[in-house]
Write a protein that binds this DNA or RNA. Structure first.
Lengths: 339, 339
DNA sequence: AGCAACGCAGTTATGGATAACAATCCTAGG
DNA sequence: CCTAGGATTGTTATCCATAACTGCGTTGCT
């Protein structure tokens, strides 16, 4: 049990008075301006230490117009992509001397718009949008017109603000890997198509099959959760002709593998499974999961760098910053069963 | 390619001028003060809408001394506990009308102190610490003396500021479950003991065995990662007398299971494995993982509620808010092999 | 010697909103 | 008919730090 009383700390003028200088001089010491005599500087620093003074960043933000804060918008779900992106953003921000302000939203346009508003409203210097915008694109663009913005979902209409991993290549690599192993065709469990990542993967999978002259089976849909993977796995596992499945996320792939295993289909002897993301657990599933590695942490970092560049120099020219993912072959894929 | 120029938006005085009222009246409309005539209110709101005005929260925070922002300190790792706690905090904050400011740190005391300083410095109204403090406890306590603080790691010295799940019970339930199945004793793969959660589990496991009059085997140590689980699993799997393992996190448990499987030890026929957390993937491992469920999301929410209560009324009396976890039995545990 | 440039510190204005106080106007009770 | 008190709106001071400008003494260069 405890009770407590909180109050404001000393202000710059208190430090100034105690050190016998003006507030401006304290400010100069704090901001490491060159024109301060060494004795003065030391005296001020001593008083600061003694009084336990901390500069009030709110006041500073008000006068400079910069809060040294970056806003991040994510969906209110807890999947690997979201959390590692958030981590990358935080690390990148710290390196750049920024703080991170995060808000979450649901899929609805209104919710996204509200969330972005909250960030602007809060006075962030820039925004990283890591959620699908869909119909909200225009309104969000209007709100963020005055603020540097980076998008990691690749939602249409924000092409030159995009930072991320090439999802077309990711899906192509995964699909090709299975075809190269000798599978006649590849089935696909897609993510929610509201996500542009998910629809990119879906389209690229389809195109890859078409270009190879293969039959394109109907795709199934999940919601990124392992549970949805399991549900769809129970369907796919019942069809004998299914020998290769490209799953749009590792987490769903875990569910698929579980379902197939329960149905008595061996992996990879009977069915091959490929995921996307290369989550930390992918190497430790049974069997270890073949997947396409894309570092969300790296994406987060790059998004921050891009954003900070734009904050520092608003007139800078920007182009999309998209990198290619790499295939990680493990034990969940093999040639199709003979016959 | 695009180039852009960013500028400040309209201020309250602009709205006031356009509506033919004083700034104070605009403020009253925005803050829903009762004494504003309906006509005036409507006129002001119309102008606000027309000009696309947004109140500047920085200025507001400066004068009110409240930023409506909560600071969260986490470790710079990407595990399930961290990310779901962060999610819970964000949801809780949104409900309470707060925004979240997150910073990460490494394990070192200096890093923790820096991170907390950054938050205070940033002007947050309260702080949630979700990282082990260790030797930094005293200095952190000093820094946070003026700010409401909640701790979810259970680090010593902050007893009455703790919010979380009872780790003693978690470890006891897991250990007892294995003993009840008939295992002679239970081995333990612990988390990093810098974490008070990890050391609580370790101690409780030991006590449970002692109270049951069982032999206490030497414990092994991991770092929460699946990889460390795998490494330790390769050791445990080589010892024939090991029939039951209590792993301090689900993610490490995945690694342990993978290692045991590779060594040809069947789960649960030869070895039973219990984890902690009940991560989303736990139900979809092979075999599905028996574990102790603790909702980090809920912990995050409760931490926010507690914190907001303290912010609102600094003199409020506080006690620790610790809830009990529940055992989730799946297929990774069974009676020991006969003989 | 003379004047520009610089080093150093102080003064004033500014950023945007709100609290506290002041000034109207109106209404109801005496 | 007068006034106390409420409703409504305006005015001024304040929050804290920084930018821009000012003042003065010193250094440097021709």
């Amino acid at each position: 049990m405890s009770t407590q009383q909180y109050e404001r700390g000393p202000a710059m003028r208190d430090v100034a008075a105690a050190a016998g200088v003006s507030a401006q001089t304290v400010s100069r010491v704090l901001n490491e301006h060159p024109n301060v005599q060494d004795g003065t500087r030391r005296r001020v620093l001593a008083v600061i230490d003694e009084l336990g003074y901390r500069r009030n960043n709110t006041a500073r933000a008000l006068v400079t117009g910069r809060s040294k804060t970056i806003g991040v918008l994510t969906l209110a779900t807890n999947n690997y992509a979201r959390s590692s992106l958030a981590l990358g953003v935080e690390l990148g921000a710290r390196e750049a001397g920024y703080t991170v302000n995060s808000v979450t939203s649901s899929l609805s346009s209104q919710s996204v718009i509200d969330a972005v508003s909250r960030l602007v409203y809060q006075g962030v210097d820039g925004i990283i949008i890591a959620a699908p915008l869909q119909e909200a694109v225009e309104q969000v663009a209007k709100i963020t017109a005055r603020i540097p913005t980076v998008n990691t979902d690749g939602s249409a209409g924000l092409g030159d603000r995009a930072v991320g991993v090439d999802q077309d290549i990711a899906a192509m690599v995964a699909t090709k890997h299975l075809l190269d192993l000798g599978h006649k065709t590849v089935w696909h469990l897609a993510g929610p198509i509201e996500w542009s990542d998910a629809s990119s993967r879906l389209n690229s999978w389809r195109r890859t099959l078409q270009e190879a002259g293969r039959e394109v089976p109907p795709e199934l849909h999940g919601d990124w959760s392992p549970e949805s993977g399991y549900r769809n796995g129970l369907i796919l596992g019942r069809m004998p002709e299914v020998t290769a499945i490209f799953v749009a996320s590792d987490e769903m792939a875990f569910g698929v593998i579980r379902a197939l295993t329960e149905l008595g289909r061996r992996i990879p002897e009977d069915v091959s499974v490929v995921g996307i993301d290369d989550i930390d657990l992918a190497a430790y599933s049974t069997p270890p999961l073949t997947t396409v590695r894309q570092s969300f942490e790296d994406t987060g970092r790059r998004a921050v760098h891009r954003l900070v560049a734009q904050i520092t120099n608003p007139k800078i020219a920007t182009t999309a910053d998209i990198v290619a993912p790499t295939l990680v072959v493990r034990a969940s894929t093999a040639p199709p069963p003979a016959g």
